[in-house]
Structure formats: structure tokens, C-alpha cells
Nucleic acid binder design. Sequence first.
DNA 1: GATACGTGGCC
DNA 2: TGGCCAAGTAT
Length: 350
Amino acid sequence: MRDGKGAIGESLLKWYDTDARVMPWRVSPQDRASGVRPDPYRIWLSEVMLQQTTVAAVRDYFRRFTARWPDVEALAAAEDGAVMAEWAGLGYYARARNLLKCARVVAQEMDGQFPQTAAELQKLPGIGPYTAGAIAAIAYDEPVAVVDGNVERVVSRLFAVQTPLPAAKPELTDLTAQITPQSRPGDFAQAMMDLGATICTPRNPACAICPLIADCDAQSQGIAADLPRKLAKKPKPTRLGFAYVAMNAAGDVLLERRPEKGLLGGMLGFPGSEWSEAPTPAPPLRSDWQEADAEVRHTFTHFHLILRVFVTRTEGANFTPGGDFAPGDLPTLMRKVWDAAQSADWPQPE
DNA sequence: GATACGTGGCC
DNA sequence: TGGCCAAGTAT
């Protein structure tokens, strides 16, 4: 243990048992005391959903997934399109594709049992260093360092690490390992993340009520809010595109399944042009297309997108039956396209 | 190491 | 309003 930091585990777990939030996927301290064990399936599902995603955004998705697919065998047996539709709106859709791959490996090749070590877990699709550590620590009590963005921030402040991210990652992982206790490593990991989410926040950290204030080098140096240092990000370019919403007399709409790889991979969407500085219009069929008044603006991780939306009524296409389509099955960008189409001045049928 | 990959909330 | 940020992973 690092000098002067010996009490961190104890202080943090005391705070966790009394003050921390209880999530739908978490076993409460009371239940844990009664011998209740975390369900690896639910831990895995929640951790994948929580990758780069806030607790508030995950809650309802987690509830719907576990209600519809209560165990890994049920999820493994689901249709691809059903899982993608249930994930729609949560973002980073490779997670949903890898979720299904992983469920099928576990169900078909591992007798429905997840591996019990971080090293083995990390071999599965969609499970990287963070998620492997989180599952191993929470579900199987492996005393492994669990390092997400919250922990990076907490640890960089505790030890006043000045190295900018992402170069500081190995150092922060090593420091986290030094303060991870042999006892209750899963609760320790969740406590660190809860602390980062609620007290040791990026801006205006609430140091006055922090259970680790006596252990924090950055606080004593008055630089807590300045850490962790981060490299400057590149500016986002703006791309343009065209999107097309065709509907027949029965109210069916024309949708396509996007390719597995790439942006919004595997999701349903409206046909359209490529997205670039100067896109070429690409209507999916000949018809009387009318442009909607409102453009769609959407920002992805690495670029801004402005879409011009065109609508038409026609019978000449392979439409998705209206009963099989709900806007909620679409990624957010395509929901915006749908919304813009509703406010358009639709042409009369040909 | 750098880049691709969503979305919504916050200030 | 626009950039920052969130329980990261794959390539």
C-alpha cells in the first residue's frame, strides 16, 4: 500500500454502505449481508450498457432488457433485429451487436456460465479491460483494478497525477491496484465510481463532503478541479446529407437495415445519400419528392451532421409494413428524420 | 497511439 | 449555443 493512503479502502466502503446510491442492478448492502450474490448476467448487461453512458440513460433500458430476456440463454435466442430495436436510442450500437455475440458464445459454448476471471472475461466480444474487471470484481470477488473514467479522475486527484490522459492510463491503473482491497473489491470498485459520479465530479468537486478528503493530494494542493489533465480534442467537421421518407397509401414506410459495420451499424434507417461536404442526392426511387421545411441537425462523436429531408407518397417500393415499424425502434438520428418528415408538406399520391 | 463509434444533459 | 462529459471497446 502506498504511504499515507492506507485508510482509503475503509473510508470509502464506510461511505458506500451508508451514502451511495443503489442501482437496479446492484445488490444492496442489506441483501449482500444476507448472502445474496450478484447475477453475472445482470452485472455484465449493466456494465456493457454503462460503457460511455450515464446511469440515468441506462436505467429504463436495463429494466426492459431484463424483463424481456431474463437470462443469457434467453438473450442468446433472441432475433438480431429485436435486440437492435430494444437498444435503439442508447447509442454505440456495436455494443448491442457484441452483446448478442457474447451471449451466444456463453450460452452455446460455456453452458450458460460466464468465465470467472477478468483475464478470461476479456476474451469475449465487447468486454474490454474495464468491463472484465468490473464483472470479475463485482460478481466473483476478484481483487482486480477497475478503472473507468470516474476512477481515472478520483485516482488522478488522490495522487495528484499531472500526466495528461490518455498517456496516464497505465500509471492510474497501477495506482488503483495499489489501493484496491483484497476484501470486497467489487464494492470498492462501485464505490470509487459512485464517488466520481456524485462527489469527485469533473467540475466543482464537492471536496467538503468527500470521505477521502484527508487522503487527497490534489485537494491539499488546491488543484483538484484541474485534474485529470487531458490532451486537447480535435474540432468536429460538419457533414451534409440527404434522407428520404417514402410512404404508401397504407401508411407503410420505406426502411433499410444498415450494414453491420460503421456508423449506426445493424440499425434500421431511412435511405439516403452519403454524408460528406458535398453529397450527391440519392433518392431510392423515382417519385415526386418534396423537401421538409426543417433540416435535421445531429452531432456524433466525431462530426456534426445536417440532413435535408425529402418525403413522397408512392406504391412503387418494398415497404416495411406499418405494424412492424415504430419510431422507437430507430436510432435517434433517424427519429429526428421521421419527426422532420411529419412536419413536411406531403405530395399527393402519384 | 490514433481513430471510429451515439446520445443526452449540463453550464 | 456549443463544447464537455459519461461505469470503453475494437481496429
